[in-house]
Simulated assay, not measured.
Amino acid sequence: MVVGGAQAIEKDRLAQDFVRFAVESGVLRFGEFKTKAGRLSPYFFNAGLFDDGAKMGRLAEFYAQALMESGIEFDMVFGPAYKGIPLAATVAVELARRGRNVPFAYNRKEVKDHGEGGTLVGAPLQGRVLIVDDVMSAGTAARESIALIQAAGATPHAVVIALDRQEKATENGQDVNHSAVQYVRQQLGLQVCAIATLADLLQYLQQDDGSGVSAHHERVLAYRQRYGV
């Protein structure tokens, strides 16, 4: 019980450190943003704004640490085009730095008809494949990655993301009673590891550290109460 409690404390600390890092990097922003589902969200996470070497290196550390703490086993990493490509590459580098050297691959959206051809680049897809992505909105990218991995004869095993928004997914324009992460876990059978969740963000926004972030807590909480799972 003590070990489990220590692990929970460490996971919570990692999540809070990550949320703080995302806010300070300008990647996690507050205001009014329209989501793919047409909702007006009081916050927006744009992993494309991890846009320099220092930020990407720190981001990879968070991914690697979350994976190590999760206990998820995998044989290689895969980055779905496009945001998943630099994520898979930098996470593979960080894992190797920590003594866990694994192959990585990614896909291109356009089929190449010269050179090696095809849509896959990097190491051959084989064994238990870990998909590395930023967020999961509808599970569409995960399904596409699963199809590519299975077609190559490998096993789609798990997904690691930076932020789990913990909100209802939409199907045919209608809200459903599960999130994209829950869908991937329950319907597609993959393990999912998230560095942080919306609950972690709300916990962070409860603090009054002089930065003014606490002013956003009420709106984010109201959003979760309306769309959360």
Rank of each mutant, 00 (worst) to 15 (best):
V159G: 01
L190R: 00
I149R: 06
H217N: 08
T197V: 03
S145G: 04
Q191S: 15
Q182V: 11
V159A: 00
Y183E: 14
S211K: 04
A154S: 05
L188P: 00
A147H: 09
Q206F: 02
D200A: 10
T140I: 09
D200M: 09
K168S: 14
Q166M: 13
C193K: 10
R185K: 14
H157P: 01
A180N: 00
S211M: 05
A151I: 06
Q150F: 03
R165T: 07
Q191T: 14
A141M: 03
I149A: 06
A142E: 08
V181M: 04
L190Q: 00
A199I: 10
V176H: 03
Q166W: 03
E171Y: 12
V159Q: 05
Q182R: 11
L205E: 04
G212V: 00
D164V: 05
V160L: 06
L148A: 07
S214E: 15
I161K: 01
L163N: 06
N177A: 11
D175M: 13
L190V: 04
Q191G: 15
E171R: 14
Q174W: 07
I195Y: 04
Q186L: 06
G139A: 11
T170D: 12
H216G: 06
G212R: 05
A169F: 07
E218R: 14
R165P: 00
H217M: 05
D208N: 15
A152G: 08
N177Q: 13
V181A: 11
G210T: 13
E167R: 12
I146K: 06
V160A: 01
N172D: 15
S137V: 14
E171L: 15
D200I: 07
D175W: 12
E144H: 11
S145N: 08
E144Q: 12
N177T: 00
A199T: 14
A138N: 03
A194Q: 00
D175N: 12
E144W: 02
M136R: 10
L202Q: 13
R143H: 04
Q174F: 10
L205Q: 01
A194V: 00
R165N: 07
L202P: 03
A158D: 05
Q186V: 03
A141T: 11
G210H: 09
I146N: 07
A162C: 09
A152D: 05
V160G: 00
T197N: 11
S211D: 08
V135R: 04
V160M: 01
K168V: 12
I195Q: 01
V176I: 15
R143V: 07
G139E: 02
I161W: 01
D200T: 08
D175K: 12
Q191R: 14
Q207N: 12
N172T: 07
R185Y: 03
P156D: 06
K168Q: 15
A138Y: 02
S214N: 15
G212E: 13
G139S: 00
G189C: 05
D209A: 14
G173D: 07
L205V: 02
A147P: 00
G173F: 06
I149M: 02
D209Y: 12
I161E: 01
D133Y: 05
L190E: 07
A169N: 14
H216F: 15
E218F: 10
